[in-house]
Design a protein around this nucleic acid. Structure first.
Lengths: 231, 231
DNA sequence: GCTCAGTGTTACACATTTGTGACAAACAAA
DNA sequence: TTTGTTTGTCACAAATGTGTAACACTGAGC
């Protein structure tokens, strides 16, 4: 399964660091925010799979942020785990009623944190977690099956989409037409090698906003390469 | 909203009674089982919305029952809350790792019980206890089971309603026909994939006030996506 | 300059995928 | 029962994607 991204929201750098270490050891990717505003933009922008949210923060509190997130339909489905220093029961209930998915009292062991996190993630869509790949303003998002250049959507046919997906995950390396046929079309079909050229052309055309067609480079005598350099 | 059914599993009648009182006051319907075997049959038979499971029971323990339930595909999706007498951390982790959705330490107040139960139910079925979901003037209200566009009611068949409900809670993401069949029709039915197309068509038709049919987008070669963007 | 292999570009026929309306079976309410 | 609604499937239409060939262009070597 693709690695999940967790957003850590806490005003104390030391605590963020601790959490990051624990989560990275358990093979999660981390984002960090020091306050509610920052957290909110990151959630919209990076779409983490889960938010670890400190209850007490200067400015907008974690509880308040959780409430807002759950009220907006765009962010409502992001699971939230609230962190709090003292396990006062009223807090606990308040937190869960606001819509947080779980609630952890400090101090807690890394093992407990990860176990609870897993339990919450298990309940959310198991297919989510594919992260988008971005380069030079070009973004491909596998989960929505969408490609954008500077947030402007572009249209690709299925084959061009797979071709771009392959290139984005195999940048800076030249491939022969035959290799591309193997990887993008799948081994057992017979199509002319020149067909690759045509699809390269179609892909370049679709990317031609802002000269992004240069991302796909010709390697004379060999094939093609996707590269963000020499650009 | 339909009332939810909670299965209480504990070997002590006194505790079962207490739990029942607390839950019935909060407007839940209750089932009771005194041991794991009984509980298992009731789960298969009555399909409760949640199981409150005592850790320590003579015979098969609650933990063991939880593990079995989560391993069987048929019962895996039933949420489980484990009850335990002492909050030893190892127990806690063990419980969550087995797949329990939450873990409550006795003694607990009725308020805490109900709050946690709500939280678990909420993330099991995101629409339970949720407020209505709105996007672009289209509103779906789970409690009244009603859909409106700019306050004008629209008519949907049950399947179209569930489809829209699923889309609204899973926006901005592409789903294959097969995934939609899984999520909207439920795993074990055999219907043609093309049937999805027809229901998509019916949903679009119902949404066609003010061009809202564009909310449901075709992802060629893949399936469909619900999106408020690119609209 | 010329030649030629390699690549870019376009057009088009064909294949595949999706949209749409119709219909009969299943179901529920009266 | 009758009536009306919902559902799944099909057949055909429409839209879109695909592979190929033909031709144009480019650059390297002579």
């Amino acid at each position: 399964m693709a690695t999940r991204t967790i957003l850590i929201v806490d005003d104390e750098t030391a605590i963020r660091d601790m959490l990051r270490v624990a989560l990275e050891m358990a093979d999660y990717q981390c984002l960090e925010a020091g306050n509610a505003q920052e957290a909110h933009s990151l959630i919209i922008d990076k779409r983490p799979d889960l938010v670890l949210l400190d209850w007490m923060m200067p400015g907008t509190s974690g509880l308040e942020l959780a409430r807002r997130l759950k009220q907006d339909e765009v962010t409502a489905q992001v699971p939230i785990i609230l962190l709090t220093a003292k396990g006062e029961e009223d807090n606990k209930i308040q937190g869960l009623e606001v819509g947080a998915d779980d609630y952890i009292t400090k101090p807690f062991s890394p093992r407990e944190l990860v176990a609870r996190l897993k339990a919450v993630l298990r309940r959310t869509d198991p297919l989510a977690g594919a992260t988008q790949i971005c380069v030079q303003g070009l973004c491909l998002d596998p989960s929505s099956h969408r490609v954008t250049i500077h947030d402007q959507g572009i249209d690709l046919g299925p084959t061009e989409y797979r071709l771009l997906e392959f290139f984005l995950t195999h940048q800076e390396r030249a491939y022969t037409r035959s290799q591309l046929l193997d990887h993008v079309w799948g081994g057992n079909v017979y199509v002319e090698e020149r067909t690759v050229d045509v699809h390269i052309r179609r892909l370049r055309k679709a990317l031609s906003i802002d000269n992004h067609e240069n991302l796909v480079q010709t390697v004379r005598g060999t094939g093609y390469r996707f590269s963000a350099q020499g650009y």
